[in-house]
Every structure is written in structure tokens, then in C-alpha cells.
Design a protein around this nucleic acid. Structure first.
Lengths: 356, 356
DNA sequence: AGCTTACAATAAAACGTTTCACCAGAATTT
DNA sequence: AAATTCTGGTGAAACGTTTTATTGTAAGCT
């Protein structure tokens, strides 16, 4: 047997009896090649099972067709579906994607960003771990960067996000209108800009309802304990509003462990709508983010930037939908048993949102 | 301003006043370099913000330090956490990962496999879409391949999977022992080898319980309709056992829409334990797969193969845990109200499993 | 018939690295 | 002091491509 290696363009050229340049021309669809030669090359390619070496190809041609994606956590279903959509879109435009997760860790994110430069991507889509993203971006990074979902402290970035404030405000207004006197707002950390925006949205729209915020961190045992203590103290708040996915999970589990029941003991709403929230009874009132659309817009924008469109940084806010379900019934004191699955769907009206 | 480009090793060499070779030696920690020169090089690297070009580096050194990962669907939480674990492990061993999703599509998987060769990975970890994986692996592929989770029809692959048969059998035995007379087993498709193994495990362990299988496909409206029709027909089966995540989701939602209640109308169990299954009331009896361990074993095995360990293909079966919860109470006819959240945990005994 | 144009194919340079062979000088041995 | 071995450093080749410039040949024009 021949000492087989993965075949190179040279081996193809030899086998087809042509020059390397001709093989390259055929493979890249250059028009100046006769049908006869093209056939011979294609045959050789097929017989050898040749595929181009991306590294070498990119090195020489200096065109990347490669984008990097950095997300805080792949196991979060929101981000997973964000990545999955991006992957699909990128493929349609003939781009490759290098995806990395920061595992909810700021230093790891910085590390990944440094590392991803080695790939020489033509652009980057990043969902940053927190607002201080700008500090972690390597200084000599030239490729365009589009941020998504989470809002950076510093200006000057392209940004595709959702209207956190108004959407959270819609939930607060809903709770207020239903007659809840006070609402305990829960979130991982106000250092995450989204959580901050949501909390501010709640305060702005709370009306007569008294609101209060409790930060419980990410995977933080102390935070979890503070939450449990609060839920064991009496009187309970009339409603709970959890501002992010991780917090919602923890809160809901804690309530179950303590034996609190929704909505009899308190109402419950969540930012981030997950699949199971319409499977539990009663369904959980939640803000649903247009995650696929976010991916689409982010990709479209990055693609424009990668193909040379200059211009001022763009900020776009996408509109969330609010799903009203059984966990926040009209009047918590009088009728506490509306456990109908699912619920009416209420969409934010189309009012313009102007960031900053 | 200088016409800045992303800095190359040559620019570093110029700035440090040394040769390119020396820069390379410093960067790769070659011992034969004086502290003084090393410092100068490191300074220049820092000032320029230089990072190596992975493509060029790999091209010349011919050592890849790169592995590919192909999963059927990133939005499936199981696979997402599989990938996330792999990513972490790979980083610890200084490997890069290229992750792609086949989006539950056999042709797309074939396409991705072809494409991923262009990266010249040193190895591949694949969770195949179905058993016919071998046909889709490009013929001239030399790097080692480790399959995970799903069992291929053809032999000759390294494989890390779970003990589908025994685990599913344990659920069937449990249902039988609880006195359910018949069980409708649901799954996406028997063309997925896991589903087949599980179904066979059920049949082998069903005892006196009558079992029947219904395939409902993946995102298949006809299948969904067949399921709904069956659930509207009377008499209902005593128990439902769903063999994969997607099917569980669909089934549970359909039951809710029809107005069937668990476990009053029928018992319900699932292969694949998801977070929400202990959040709903009653909790859902489920088989929990050791997904992180699967990733660990797959990586360890691939790493061995990539670093030259030859030898016969290895098959390893990991043991699943069975979580008994309120959805499959002891006696469905007499006591139909045990809706306690959570439940006792039952682990498979440590009997050897031989996959021939 | 001569002279330009157009075409098809190729040789060779280049991309950013790593590695190999080599070299000058210092340190050691004889 | 001459001969040898180390030592720390460098020039140039090589990796697998794409691209540019160049060649040889056939066709089109006076």
C-alpha cells in the first residue's frame, strides 16, 4: 500500500497531469479553464477524495470567510439556539464559524477572546459576560465586532439587543394592574447590564406597586441562601419577578422545596421564556425574547461590516413578547386557583424605543 | 498613523531586533534562548499585541492540536452540555475545537463531515444523526473518530454510549411491578439506534405488561397527529414511556392540550431527564444519562487515539440512573393522587453489560 | 505572410509560520 | 596554542495553497 497521507493539491495535479495552478483554478471556478482539463481535474479530485486545506487556503488568499462567536454559556438554551441559528446563517453565506463558550467566567472570556484572534476571523459576534466587555477585547483587534443581547458599558459597538426596560416594565405594569401590592424582583447580578436595564424598567413602570430588588449571583450558595431565607420570612411578597433564566430556575425550585405554591401563595413571573414554562401548571407568565431574530440581525450586521461597510456603530433594539399565563392571575387574594395551562398572549405595542 | 495590519512574526522580529526564528523559539518555549533576548521579544510581542496565526502555524508544524465535534442538534440541552464539557476538557489539554451541528439532518451531517476535513483536525468526536453514519464518513478520512451516544450500524468504531437497553428495561420493569397492564412506548424513529436499543430493552423487561411502540418522527406533523389520535381514543394505555427528549416534549404538551392528567389518567415516564421534569407536579419519572461523563470518556479516548495509541476499537457503555418520581405511582387505579414533587432515586445495579 | 490579440496553461512568488542546517564565537579540552 | 565541543543565534527551506506574471500557441487582422 502507498504510504497514504491526506492528499494535497500537488497530488491531484500529478494525477490529472496538469499544473497545481490549474487545479486551483478549477476548484475555485475560474472561467479560464477548458472543459477537458476541468473534467480531468475533477476526476482526480474525486478519486483521491481531495479537499482543500482551509488553513493554507486562507493563509495565501487572505480572505477569511470565518467568523468567531463567543457566548457566556452554551448550556443556556437561549444561547444554544442563538448559536445554532448563527451557524445556519453563516453556512448560507459560505462562512465558517468558530464557537467558544466563556462558561460564565469573565477571565475565561478574556482568554477566549485572546485565543480567538489566532484564528484571524473576519469578524466577531459576542454575547459578553458583563458590561465591562470593552476592557477584555484585545487592544490590537481589527476585525469588526457585533455585540448581542447584553449591553456594554462603553459606547462605540454595534449592538443587537432587546428592549429590556419596556418589556420588564410591561410585566411590572401587568402585576400592578392585577392589584399586587408589592413585588420582589430577583436577578443574578446588576453587573449584567441586561439585568440592570430590566430592573430599571420595572421601577419605571411599577406604578403603585412597591418593588424591591434582590441579587443572588450566579451559582452562588450565599445568594441561594438569602433567597431561601426571604421566602421563609413572613409576610411574603405578593409577587416574584425573576429577571434571568438561571435565577428563574433557582427560584422556582426553591419555592417548590419550601412548599410555596403558585399562585396561591404568591404570583410569579420570569424574564426569558423557556419551553417548560408552558408545561407546568399553572403556566408561568414570562417575557419571550426574539432570540432567532437577534441572531439574524446580528449576522446580517456583521456580514455588512465584514464586507466593508463602514459607518457609525448601530444599536438595534428588538421587541419582546409578553406571555401572560396562570402564574399571575387577576386577583391573587380572591381567586387563587386559576391553573389553566397556557394563557392569553399579549404583545408589546409597537412604540419606538430609543436607547440612551 | 502606520497602515496597521494585524502584526506578523516578522514585525515582532524587526521591533525586537532579532531574527524571525528567534521570535518563534521564544514563543514556543525553546530552551536555547538567552533571558535577555527572550525579554526583548516578549516586550515586542506585548507592545504589538501579537498573537500567532494558527493557520500558518499548523500548516508548517503539521501538528494539529485541533479536534472536530459534530452533534445532531445544538439546541438539545443534552448535546449542548456535551459540547460544553468537551470544550472545557479540550482547553485543558491545549486543543482547539471546531463544533458543528447537523441540525437533525442526515444530508447536512454528511456535508458538515466533508467540510470539517478542510480543517485538518487531528480527530473527531461525532454524535451521529442515525445508525448509517459509516456511509457518510468521507472515504479518505485518516484522523481517528470517536462516536458518542448513538450506536452505529457498522462495527469498527470507537464508541462511548450508555446502556440504553438495561436502563429502558428498568423503567419497563418498574411500570410492570407497579401493576400497569399495558404501556404505549413512544419514540421519534427506530432508525435512531438508541431508540431501537431502548425499545428492545423495554420488550425484554416488560414482564406481564403488554407493550406497543409508536414512531412519531422528528418535527413530523403526521406523527404528532397520530399521537394525538391515539391519546383521544379509549381505552387509554395504562402508561406512556417516551424514549427521547423531543418525543417527551411533544407528548407532554399534547397530553396537556387534550386535558389528560398525569398520573390520574395515565402514568408517564421518559428517557432523558431534563431540568423541568422535577419542576412540574408531579415530577416525571425519567432515565438520567451521564452526559458529562460521556463527554469525559469520549475526550479521553480521542486524546489517546490522537496521540498515537492504536488498537482495536473500544466500546464502552456507561450506566444510567433512573429517577422515580410522582408520574408513575404505585397503583394507578387505587391511589391516583401522589403528586409529591421530586421522588426517590433509584440507581441501576452494577451488573456488567457486554455489547458483544 | 507578417503582426497583433486572445486564450489556456504554467512556473514561480507569496502568505506567516516552524524547523533544519549552519555559523560565529566562547568555553573547554588536549 | 591549537583543536574540539558548546552555545545562542540566524538564513533559508518548507508547509499547501492562491495569485501574478509569463509562456507558448492558435486565431484574427492588415
Amino acid at each position: 500500500m502507498s504510504k497514504s497521507r491526506t492528499p494535497s493539491i500537488k497530488m491531484v495535479a500529478d494525477r490529472a497531469g496538469v499544473s497545481v495552478a490549474t487545479v486551483s483554478n478549477v476548484l475555485n471556478g475560474k472561467p479560464t479553464v477548458s472543459p477537458d482539463f476541468a473534467r480531468r481535474v475533477n476526476d482526480a479530485v474525486r478519486e483521491l477524495g481531495y479537499v482543500v486545506d482551509l488553513g493554507a487556503s486562507r493563509l495565501r488568499s487572505r480572505k477569511a470567510q470565518l467568523a468567531g462567536v463567543v457566548v457566556p454559556d452554551l448550556t443556556n438554551p437561549m444561547f444554544a439556539s442563538f448559536v445554532s441559528t448563527l451557524e445556519h446563517l453563516a453556512r448560507l453565506d459560505d462562512y465558517d464559524l468558530v464557537v467558544v463558550s466563556a462558561r460564565n467566567n469573565v477571565e475565561e472570556e478574556a482568554d477566549r477572546l485572546r485565543k480567538i484572534r489566532s484564528w484571524r476571523p473576519a469578524g466577531l459576534i459576542v454575547i459578553p459576560c458583563d458590561g465591562a466587555f470593552a476592557e477584555r477585547l484585545p487592544n490590537g483587534f481589527f476585525a469588526p465586532v457585533v455585540l448581542a443581547d447584553r449591553i456594554p458599558d462603553a459606547a462605540g459597538f454595534d449592538l443587537i439587543a432587546v428592549d429590556n426596560g419596556p418589556a420588564a416594565g410591561a410585566i411590572a405594569a401587568h402585576l400592578d394592574k392585577q392589584g399586587y401590592g408589592d413585588c420582589l424582583v430577583l436577578g443574578s447580578s446588576l453587573s449584567i447590564t441586561n439585568v440592570r436595564e430590566r430592573w430599571e424598567g420595572v421601577r419605571a413602570a411599577a406604578g403603585r406597586m412597591h418593588v424591591e430588588m434582590l441579587e443572588i449571583g450566579i451559582d452562588d450558595v450565599n445568594g441561594a441562601q438569602r433567597l431561601e431565607e426571604r421566602l421563609r420570612r413572613r409576610p411574603l411578597p405578593g409577587a416574584l419577578f425573576s429577571l434571568d433564566h438561571g435565577t428563574t430556575l433557582l427560584t422556582y425550585r426553591t419555592m417548590a422545596e419550601i412548599g410555596l405554591s403558585v399562585p396561591a401563595d404568591l404570583a410569579f413571573a420570569s424574564f426569558d421564556d423557556m419551553e417548560w414554562m408552558q408545561l407546568v401548571a399553572p403556566g408561568i407568565t414570562a417575557v419571550r425574547q426574539p432570540i432567532e431574530e437577534m441572531a439574524e440581525q446580528a449576522w446580517a450586521l456583521l456580514l455588512r461590516r465584514m464586507t466593508g461597510s463602514a459607518g457609525k456603530p448601530v444599536t438595534r433594539r428588538l421587541r419582546c413578547a409578553v406571555e401572560i399565563r396562570g402564574s399571575t392571575p387577576r386577583s391573587p387574594l380572591e381567586e387563587a386557583g386559576n391553573t389553566k395551562l397556557g394563557g392569553e398572549k399579549w404583545t408589546l405595542q409597537d412604540e419606538p424605543y430609543s436607547p440612551e
